[in-house]
Simulated assay, not measured.
Amino acid sequence: MCDKQNTVANADLPIYGSLGMTFMEFPVVSDLTMSDAEVIVAGVPFDMATSGRSGARFGPQGVRQASSQLIWEGARWPWQFALDDHLIVADSGNVLFKHGEPQTMVDNLQAHISTILDSGKSSLTFGGDHFITLPVLRAYAKKHGPVALIHFDAHTDTYSGGTKYDHGTLFHHAVEEGLVDTEHSIQIGIRTAYDLDGHPFEVLDAAWVGDHGPGAILERIHARVGDKKTYVSFDIDGLDPSCAPGTGTPVAGGMTMDCALKVIRGLQGINLVGMDVVEVAPAYDHAEITSLAGATLALEYLYVMAANKMA
């Protein structure tokens, strides 16, 4: 739910925008300033910036629903503690915006994330298509300055020729606007064409990832981001379609779920300030495996946040 003081006038609940259940059955929060939660979950049921198959507007609903398969473990393997004992998480529901007016989503999402950050918390955001990361990064840069970026994807999303609302151009705009520290940012799993000359980020392409494995990936990540405040953006199509068929632009040859989980767990010690999981499109899924993948990656990130807090 977007904070009323930061909401665009006359915004309404988008189609498919109702909450249903919360992520991991975490409590619902409506007043962010009064909550003692350290991490706030938000959903953004928006897919008007897709260039291929739409359907990611159902992503927040799918990920939350799939998280019901994860709630029964007290201390999730391989962690040796229960998350609730060390990290307070709440779910703020879905960001409100006017259906058919993308700019209201942009304004309301940025305002919502700013409210979270100004309340001394961090965010875990479920898309929606990848364009939603741009207003999130604007809020983070306003609070923290340019952040380091760890980006998992089949695509670089740095293309300059798209439209104003385009899930393939968001990191082009993020660089142009100075939202990310490109010298401390890295993209992982890329396996589509991009311009090598002048590319702003270090890239570990999918072939390199497959050949070298999680240990080498983590060495490069830690060396690249250092002690910078770091934001993680996980496009679910970074995974191979065998692990995540339910997405708008699947590309063969991606990361396995095992590799992705080991890399997320290995982010312990990095100064993590936020994460999103985007491009889950349940209509193309089978047996909820893509939604479950998104929910599992998000939960592992929360365990890393708890482990960092305990260190």
Rank of each mutant, 00 (worst) to 15 (best):
W79E: 11
I113A: 12
L302K: 10
E176F: 04
D91K: 11
A260V: 13
S185W: 02
Y284N: 02
H222N: 15
R53A: 09
M21P: 10
A307H: 13
G93T: 07
F97D: 08
P200H: 06
S30K: 12
T7C: 13
G178I: 03
L302H: 15
K98Q: 13
E202R: 06
T156E: 04
K229G: 01
E288L: 07
Y165D: 03
L292H: 08
Y165I: 05
T192G: 00
F234E: 00
G198Y: 07
F201N: 01
W72R: 15
G59P: 02
S160C: 03
P245F: 11
C259F: 15
G253R: 10
L292A: 11
G248K: 10
P102S: 06
G168Q: 01
V8L: 07
G162F: 07
F201K: 01
C243F: 02
I116E: 02
L292T: 14
Q61V: 12
I217E: 04
G189T: 01
T290L: 13
H286V: 15
H144R: 03
N271Y: 10
K98E: 12
A287D: 12
H86C: 04
I264Q: 11
H173L: 06
Y194R: 04
F152Y: 14
I270M: 01
R220D: 00
I186Y: 03
L239N: 05
H167Y: 01
A293N: 00
